[in-house]
Write a protein that binds this DNA or RNA. Sequence first.
DNA 1: TCATGTGAAGACATTCACAGCA
DNA 2: TGCTGTGAATGTCTTCACATGA
Lengths: 218, 218
Amino acid sequence: MKNKNGNTVPEKNIERLLLYRRILANLRREKKTAVFSHQLALMSDASPAQVRRDFMLIGYFGSPVRGYDIDQLIQSINEFVDAQEVQKVTLVGVGHLGRAILNYFQGRSDKLAITAAFDRNPEKVGRVLHGIHCYPTERIQEIVKAEGIDVAIITVPESEAQDVADRLVQAGIRGILNYAPIKLNLPPEIFVDNRDMLLAVEKIAFFARRRIRKESVS
Amino acid sequence: MKNKNGNTVPEKNIERLLLYRRILANLRREKKTAVFSHQLALMSDASPAQVRRDFMLIGYFGSPVRGYDIDQLIQSINEFVDAQEVQKVTLVGVGHLGRAILNYFQGRSDKLAITAAFDRNPEKVGRVLHGIHCYPTERIQEIVKAEGIDVAIITVPESEAQDVADRLVQAGIRGILNYAPIKLNLPPEIFVDNRDMLLAVEKIAFFARRRIRKESVS
DNA sequence: TCATGTGAAGACATTCACAGCA
DNA sequence: TGCTGTGAATGTCTTCACATGA
């Protein structure tokens, strides 16, 4: 959603590279060692040419005979998209959504780690949920700064989101994944992605109605 | 994410129109009656020209003097994006994520209604959560067909997602919002949007690192 | 033969910039 | 004056199509 890059790598390329990496990891688990662009294309809803272009971007070259070496390709994507060290993430708002994310994150990524959660509900504060310690919202500045966290996931209600975001920015956060249904008012150097679930359903409802049966024979 | 339209309206336009509608509804609540393109642009991270183009698409015309009449504009967007009657939605997978969505949906939309939920856990089946009755997964075909539901939200674990999707398609669903982290194998006429939370965080982590401080003085 | 890497073309999306209007 | 609506220009993304190589 956000655009205006101070950098030059297009968002879409990164999205696809991350998806390829996920697919490649699965293939590796199945003991595959190489893959062709058209196979990856099928598995990722991209076109073969797009897959090849994406790999040009990161400077990985395959062989016309064997295709792309899965191990090496994963390695190249890692080098391109991952930080040198583990990047720390925090989650603010330990409701159902927050817990779903904490749970889903568990052990899924070795380069990203949720290291602290926050909630304003005193009943949740002090508890450990899915292995993550939960602190009171007031301590965001202190703890985010101390831990060196630079990505945040906001899963608080609409009414609290801006306040939380302000605290996070003061603490030095650089990127926010916002599940609250409002546009956050933030300095332009902060990278934000808004993921509004109601808008998502509305969009699908729209296209579900218009989608025309294609393919079949022709 | 899905593309290849059998129709002709670009996905991005719809996304923005839905967002404008949300913003306009808020403005109306504040008793505003009209708005200019540059104001809407600010509130939606679009450019003024983009806002005007989007309204061209739906054939709504503002006045250079007053701007856009909020009531009329909402009405025009409604006519363009909403179905005639209430569109029914189902949710499969009543875990934390599912419950977050059920809860968030409550009374938020008058043109979309979640009318049934499904889960394979016998403890959840038969209960009513956030006002929605929960049925066993095996009854998807029967109930989705009977109710005439045409949009589904999948919030089950990865391992069950494809099976659930197959049942939904057999039941005649037309659009799917998929929160499971796999690509579903579906006929091309089904509109799918994949919302993988881990990929979302990975993307933000990437751009959070590269985002360079801009603006300031220059 | 068949898949890669890529220049060039094409499709799509955004922005510019200005006429027209009150 | 300050906005809208829009043709034209620009910018971005995707696909085409082919030279290359094993």
